[in-house]
């Protein structure tokens, strides 16, 4: 089974040299810590920056330099700043190669819900709806089951949707899956020490298991 860092590590293996990548809040942010050697990616922050660097050293925080999670960050050589309208312009136009974000639920058709729980506090969708509507390649990093032990990989999302038929890949503590509309969650890899049986039991949506499923190497 993977912990949060393990999920981030496995997703980091999907990065390719030259990618422009947008990382959501939570586990996706951790992906930046595991970028493979020799792979150069440019991190986009949707408030208006390409070339996001690591957190600043203590005492060097700049209130004019934050990421989409409102955290203080740094720039790298080659950073570019721009406004939020242009930022979502580049997202909308498909210039960002990969979007990695968290989710409360995903469906076997690639629908995603991650912004609202009716009856509880609604904080808003931020940039998630724009990102999932536009990105050609979306990987979701999430827990496979909720705290009550219920599957979050579902036939249909029960929560209000963020986007429809958009998620291409999901990595959870149990495994990695492609989402193929009309087919379902196609199991690609098992997390270390996890059996296909365990994954079947934790997946409410249609699960496709074809042939021998390798254990992931991270």
């Amino acid at each position: 089974m993977l912990d949060k860092n393990g999920i981030a590590k496995r997703i980091a293996q999907e990065l390719r040299d030259g990618y422009y990548v947008n990382l959501g809040i939570g586990i996706p942010t951790l992906v930046a810590n595991f970028i493979p050697a020799g792979v150069n990616v440019m991190l986009q922050s949707e408030n208006g920056m390409l070339g996001m660097g690591p957190f600043p050293f203590e005492g060097e925080e700049d209130p004019d330099l934050i990421n989409a999670g409102k955290q203080t960050i740094t720039e790298i050589p080659g950073t570019a700043y721009f406004d939020s309208a242009l930022s979502f312009g580049m997202i909308r136009a498909g210039k960002v190669d990969l979007t990695i974000l968290g989710a409360m639920e995903v469906s076997e058709d690639g629908d995603i819900a991650n912004w609202k729980i009716p009856g509880k506090m609604v904080k808003g969708m931020g940039g998630a709806m724009d990102l999932v509507a536009a990105a050609k390649n979306i990987i979701v990093a999430m827990q496979h089951v909720n705290k009550a032990g219920e599957s979050k990989l579902l036939p249909k999302c029960s929560l209000p949707l963020t986007g429809v038929r958009c998620v291409k890949k999901v990595v959870t503590e149990l495994g990695m899956f492609d989402i193929v509309p009309g087919k379902g969650f196609v199991l690609l890899e098992r997390a270390p020490g996890v059996s296909v049986e365990q994954i079947k039991n934790a997946t409410a949506g249609k699960l496709v298991v074809e042939g021998d499923i390798p254990e992931m190497s991270i």
Binding site: E46, A85, F88, R92, M129, D130, A133, A134, V164
Partner: peptide, 26 residues
């Protein structure tokens, strides 16, 4: 949606009454 918010400001500034966006469809 954040991008829609930014673009609805931009459109006003650019003298355009509306824009078509994918965010939020469905």
């Amino acid at each position: 949606p954040q991008g829609t918010l930014a673009t609805r400001c931009m459109a006003a500034k650019y003298g355009m009454p509306a824009v078509w966006v994918r965010a939020g469809f469905g």
